[in-house]
Design a protein around this nucleic acid. Structure first.
Lengths: 338, 338
DNA sequence: CTGAAAGCGCTTACAG
DNA sequence: CTGAAAGCGCTTACAG
């Protein structure tokens, strides 16, 4: 027992009159050790209070014991449920989750990536598909298994457990148009470096383009996903001469901000203006009026992402991207007009 | 570059014409390396995409590089902001966060604890103060630094960065009583193994006890922190002959469920019944009516917890528990009566 | 079923 | 300011 008094594998070997190789075998593949030897070792471990040293293990073997996730933010509930499911699935496989946040900043994301790798991550969960060449090069160079979630792209290399933001927003916008709305405004997330926000904008534009004779995009404001900024954008929109009949929001947090601000201003939703969200967070059903939004299968997605990542780590050939479908949830904040 | 193609410190040394010792120094104490050497090494690291190997580092030195957090759940926004702040502060100190969730189950908490330690955690963030002897013994035996948050206890061993749930609930209940409410019902979280939920219940009871001649606790329902269970509890309360004039909820999620269900039932808040929450999540201000609640300084608390834990890890003598005060946020869901 | 030995990638006195 | 070398605790072919 060296300096720090912490018993090592060697101490166990000495104390049980076998080699370190045998103790190691006992620890990792007990069935490869004779029964009588097993109990000797077991006793020695008990007596010494031995616990394997992670550093030694990591260095000597190459097993993945941890994976990392980098999410834009833990504030708000946007990613909570997905990450919860991701972590639970990892835990079931005896893998620990390292987590960090990037604040929607690609530079920070790269930095966090490096730091997670340095912390032993043997795989990564990333949000969205848009990142600088430098980051991609790093990932590639390290040959690190990773899964992209919250987004989905067809026919592209890489592995996804996500959904098509553009399609989902398109579907919702089609319904909005079908409901008779011709003057659409959008309050979106900031699309730079954020393909989810960007995709949602594109989806709305696509739908409008299909009805370019009658429907138009009155205004588009990009802003941070916060209730307050959503409220501010709402004020800006409603002070236009050319007011929208519906405000499509890039997520539920923005929509909550809009609905709250509308109440403060005495503007009625949906009588004076309709509102839609995206995500179907808890908040969506709790708002007054309840929010028409897009339901994203956060939980299933997080879990699937973990399973996929695990397969990649194990070099399982059956690893395959999964696209989740989203669902339009019609509630009271969107009304038929015209 | 050995087999797996992952560059090692040696590769960097080779590529920059210095010894591994110097590269290591550059990594750990750049100021001990000549400027010109630094930039050589920097270039090589860039070129190779080198990231230090954790196993090697852990084995060679004894520095703490990761700490773990075990939170009851990541679903909902309850802990999100606190954990976000915690992680950011750790990141500033080059420490990675290992995270896991216990589902409010003490057995799982212990298991997660062991697994986080086996994953290299050199310190722990724990929520609340109530845990089985077995868990405490384990913590003690490992002599592991840990900080308790979301709770605070005076004159007890251990380190806290939290607040007094009982006092906070007491303060809110006093105001409720001052507003003229005499028939109080409470929908609380499940208090078994949850001192935060328990403390909030006690606080309300304390306040009622001070007015036992005029005020009483009509009913107390303990349930999971979910909107739906909150709604169900609301139904149960409003089907009583002896209806409460106010429903104090153990947190904002429950309160949101109550307000939503009330609307569905055609029961007006606060005209027919007042409602209060706890936490001041985003949702609180977005509800209609907006929710009277207790504001918890999640962000400051998470950050302080990280700083405290870091001090404990560094064996800094100035490490000291911090108690945060909470604030009553008066909004529309609570009205004066009588 | 077991052991001797090489090696995993890093840090750190120790010398210079 | 820099390098040679020992050593951290484990796993794993390879022999036997």
């Amino acid at each position: 027992m060296k300096k720090r008094g912490i018993p090592t594998l060697e101490d166990v070997a000495l104390s049980s009159n076998v080699s370190t190789a045998t103790v190691s075998r006992y620890l990792n593949n007990p069935e490869k050790v004779a029964k009588s030897t097993r109990s000797q070792i077991q006793k020695a471990i008990q007596k010494l209070g031995y616990t394997p040293n992670l550093g030694g293990r990591m260095l000597a073997s190459n097993k993945v014991r941890m994976v990392g996730a980098i999410i834009p933010t833990m504030a708000n509930a946007m990613f909570s449920n997905g990450i919860q499911a991701f972590q639970e699935e990892l835990s079931r496989n005896d893998i620990t989750l390292l987590i960090s946040s990037s604040g929607y900043d690609p530079k920070q994301e790269l930095q966090q990536m490096q730091s997670l790798l340095a912390s032993g991550a043997g795989g990564l969960l990333l949000i969205g598909n848009e990142r600088p060449k430098k980051t991609l090069k790093f990932l590639n160079q390290r040959n690190l298994p990773y899964v992209v979630t919250w987004a989905y792209k067809d026919g592209v290399e890489g592995f996804y457990a996500g959904f098509n933001n553009r399609q989902a927003a398109f579907d919702l916008a089609k319904i909005v148009i079908e409901y008779g709305h011709t003057k659409i405004a959008m309050i979106a997330g900031i699309s730079e470096n954020n393909d989810r926000a960007g995709g949602r904008i594109e989806g709305v534009k696509d739908a409008i383009a299909e009805h370019s004779d009658s429907v138009r995009l009155v205004d588009l404001i990009e802003t941070k996903y916060r209730m307050e900024t959503g409220g501010n954008a709402f004020d800006a929109l409603m002070s236009r001469v050319d007011k929208p009949s519906v405000i499509m929001c890039g997520n539920d947090v923005l929509a909550a901000g809009v609905i709250m601000r509308a109440r403060q201003r005495g503007i009625r939703v949906p009588e004076d203006v309709s509102v839609t969200g995206f995500d179907d967070l808890n908040i969506a059903s709790a708002l007054t009026p309840s929010l028409t939004t897009v339901r994203v299968p956060h939980f299933a997605m997080g879990r699937a992402a973990a399973k996929l990542l695990l397969k990649l780590i194990r070099k399982d050939d059956t690893a395959k991207s999964i696209e989740f479908s989203t669902e339009i949830i019609l509630r009271d904040s969107l009304r038929r007009i015209g």
